[in-house]
Amino acid sequence: MLIEAKGLKKTYKNNKGVRIEALRNANVAVRENECVGLFGSSGSGKSTIGQIMVGLLPPDEGSISYRGKSVKIPYGKGIRREIQMLYQHPEVSFNPKLTLLRSLIEPYQLMGIDPSRERILEDNYRFGIYAEHLERYPGELSGGELQRAALARILVLKPRFIVLDEPTSMLDAISQAQVVQILREIQKETGVGYLFITHNKALCQAFSSRFYRIREGITEEVSSL
C-alpha cells in the first residue's frame, strides 16, 4: 500500500465556538499506480481527508501510514515532497503578484535542478505552457492553463502520491479533458497514486478504479457509485 489513512476523526470549531464533526471515521487506502475516487456531496468531509493525507491538517484521532510506515503530521523532509495536492481553484494556486515563470522556478530550486528558462519551457511543453505564457501573471491566464501549469509545477518534485481535490470542477469541458488525459499519461509513466476527490459521479467512475463514498464524515468503500 502506498498510503493508508485509518480511523480519521476531525472536528472544527465554528464561529459560535461549537465543535462540528467533519470526519467521524474515515478510512482511505491508495496503492501505487492507482486512482482512487472519493465521492461525496459538499460538506461531507472530502477535502478534510485530502488535507490530512497531504499533511496540511493533523487529525484529532486516527493514523496515516506511508509505504508501510506510520507517519506524523507535519511530515518530515524525507516524504514532504513526495505527497502533493492539486487544488480545485487554479486561479488561486499561483501567487497573483508573481509571473508564471517566477512561480514555476521554485520547485526546480528546491530540487537543485537547473532552473533555466529553457529547461522550464522544455518540461512544460507537454502541458501546453509555452514561452508566451511565462511572463504573464496568473490573472492573465485561463483556468485550464493555470491548472496545467500547477500540475507541471508539482511534478518537478517527483511526487508518488497526489491528492486531486476537484481539479477539473472549475474548468470548461475541453480543459477538463486535457487535464484528465495528462493525469492518466503521467500515472502510466511514473506510477504515481491519485486520490481523486469529486462530487461528479460520472467523472469519478470514468477516471478511478476503486471508489469510496463519504457521508457525514464516514467513508465506505463501494464497488460502484
Partner: peptide
C-alpha cells in the same frame, strides 16, 4: 489559507 500558500508549504518552502 489560500491554495498558493498551502502549495508552498507542501513543496517544503
Amino acid at each position: 489559507e489560500l491554495p498558493y500558500i498551502q502549495i508552498e508549504k507542501l513543496m517544503g518552502v
